[in-house]
Amino acid sequence: MQRKSPWLDSIVLVFLIVTAVAMMVPYLWMVVSSFKSNMDIMSGQGSFFPNHPTLEGYFTVFEDAPFVKWMWNSAISAVIITIITLFTSALAGYVFAKHQFKGKRILFMLILATMMIPFQVIMIPTYLITARLGLIDHLAAIILPNLVSSYGVFLAKQFIEDIPQDLLDAARIDGAGELRLMIRIIAPLILPMLSALGIFTFMNAWNNYLWPLIVLNDTDHMTVPLALVYFNGTHVINYNVVMSAAVLITLPVMIVFLIFQKQFIKGLTMTGMK
């Protein structure tokens, strides 16, 4: 459609290659640094590549820290949060989209309004509530407040509204209960939206830093991002150790992303979620 200009095309390509390589430099630095030995770092002459590449850093991570425990904490809490959030979002979305009851409009508006509230605004009372429930230093403290998502409810309502009413009526006449209706008929129809919501809920739970920082102090109960920072504080000089931990943490997320890339990008553009 546009006139072809090989000259301009190559400029664009060169520009993209240069910026993309520049974008990869911090990752390269992270991987390369993780193979540095304590000697390389102590010698004081900073250089990009290690003189004596070793796995020291990786060994120290597993010896000095309950690394596997941290991964498990992160994984289990993120999985629970994701599954329950998907369920509560779909359920509330269904109720708000296809049922009539008193106060529906105002309730929905209230839930939507919470989307505008930055977490820093509610973190102090949320901490006080969590403390009163006796959950400080328990994984439940990071799971419980994250089981509902106002954006999830909003998305589910939007998508469920598009499902024809006749389809639901027909299923009801056939004797399907409401819950069965939701799981058997509605959930499959909004599956693309649910998978997008699921991916982003999982990512946010896995990457969350501020809330775990407030409620988890005990090293054994920490989640990965929090533990990484704590670990950084105890290994200030030997940054090869921290870089090894960073590699171990980033790798699974990257693999998951590369596998689900298509759904991920589609979900992002469909929902605008971050």
């Binding site: 911090p26 991002p225 990484l228 920072v229 950084n232 960073a246 943490i249 980033t250 997320v253 990257m254």
Partner: peptide
């Protein structure tokens, strides 16, 4: 997609 806390440490 990487955890921002990890990125901050690398930086």
């Amino acid at each position: 997609i990487a955890p921002l806390a990890g990125t901050a440490i690398v930086w």
